[in-house]
């Protein structure tokens, strides 16, 4: 047993992998605890990343390799079931009954996609041709988008910026995901008409605005400024939507072959349960409350417990990876302090 200080990283998604690798390279002993059988988190359920179209699988491979090279202990198929604060650290009991001692804990428990069933008016789980952006991503990856589809509508802000499902925040990634998926669809179905129904287009990242323009100019994606209020199904299974084209100033009705719901991010079940185990404060929206947003965003109310990535707020993969690096330094400062 070395006298190196030990950090337990809970959650083996992109944030967890990067944080673990960095901390290991900074000279700490690091363990990742992951409840799934492999590392990669939500990236494993994704095809390509915006804005450059990098394969998510490629990204995962890189992350996993980095973790391996950095000599990080990886515990898969387990999750913490008990955590106790002891002198100078924490003991964490895992579901396979192993007990870990940690000098510091890093929470990278991530997000879960919004459950679209809660937005009943859009008919998810009721109408055959209503899918979520996650399902569409899988369909694109598997090349199973039927070529009979001639008109697709993508609804932004499903489960985000919506008082009606208790999520007031912006999930940040859905706008650009819609643009990306619309382009991919158009590439697969050159004759299809694709509509994005948005409240605001939030193209905040580098290259996003350019991609938005490209979607309009090169791919002819149509952007309608209006929130879809409800959907119904006709006898042929087409989806009829109600929306106001607010820029025209009149309600619009339209039939679609497929309605795609751009689901937002919610704190994952792991985020909620680990926060409770460790007594970490969460925000009203359920994400973990970080410290000072400028200089201590990765700290929590519990000294020695840090947080990174989408466990603390919705963010894209680029920001997640950077956040994890920043968090690693904060942990190092704390332990070397």
């Amino acid at each position: 047993m070395s006298d190196k200080k030990h950090i337990v990283v809970i959650g083996g998604g992109p944030a967890g992998c990067v944080a673990a690798e960095r901390l290991s390279r900074l000279g700490f002993r690091v363990s990742i605890v992951e409840k799934e059988c492999e590392l990669g988190g939500n990236l494993n359920n994704w095809d390509r990343l915006f804005p450059d179209g990098k394969r998510a699988s490629e990204m995962v491979t890189k992350l996993v390799n980095d973790v391996k090279m950095a000599d990080v202990a990886v515990w898969t198929d387990v999750e913490p079931i008990e955590a106790k604060r002891v002198e100078n650290g924490f003991t964490i009991l895992l579901s396979d009954k192993s007990l870990l001692f940690a000098d510091a804990v890093m929470l990278t428990t991530g997000f879960a996609p919004f459950n679209a069933i809660r937005k009943e008016e859009y008919g998810y789980g009721i109408y055959r041709n209503v899918t979520t952006s996650v399902e569409l991503e899988n369909m694109i990856q598997a090349h199973i988008v039927p070529d009979t589809v001639s008109r697709v509508g993508m609804v932004h802000c499903v489960g985000s910026r919506d008082e009606k499902c208790g999520n007031m925040y912006c999930s940040k990634v859905c706008c650009i995901t819609a643009v990306k998926q619309a382009i991919e669809l158009k590439q697969m179905l050159p004759n299809a008409e694709i509509f994005c129904f948005y409240m605001d287009m939030r193209m905040f990242g580098p290259g996003y605005e350019e991609l938005y323009r490209e979607a309009q100019e090169r791919y002819g994606i149509k952007f309608v400024r209006g929130r879809v209020s409800e959907a119904s199904e006709d006898s042929e299974g087409r989806v009829a939507i109600k929306v106001e084209d607010t820029l025209v100033g009149r309600p619009m009705r339209m039939k679609l072959d497929r309605l795609v719901l751009m689901v937002g991010m919610e704190p994952s079940a792991g985020t909620r349960s680990v926060a409770e185990l460790l007594g970490v404060k969460t925000k009203v929206n359920g994400f973990i409350q970080g410290g000072d947003p400028h200089i201590a965003a990765n700290q929590t109310n519990v000294p020695g417990v840090f947080v990174a990535g989408t466990a603390t707020a919705p963010m894209n993969s680029t920001d997640t990876l950077n956040d994890a690096c920043a968090a690693a330094f904060q942990v190092a400062n704390y332990l070397n302090g």
Partner: peptide, 9 residues
């Protein structure tokens, strides 16, 4: 009822 299509279905 039109906002709860599951009930109608």
């Amino acid at each position: 009822g039109h906002l709860t299509p599951r009930v109608i279905a």
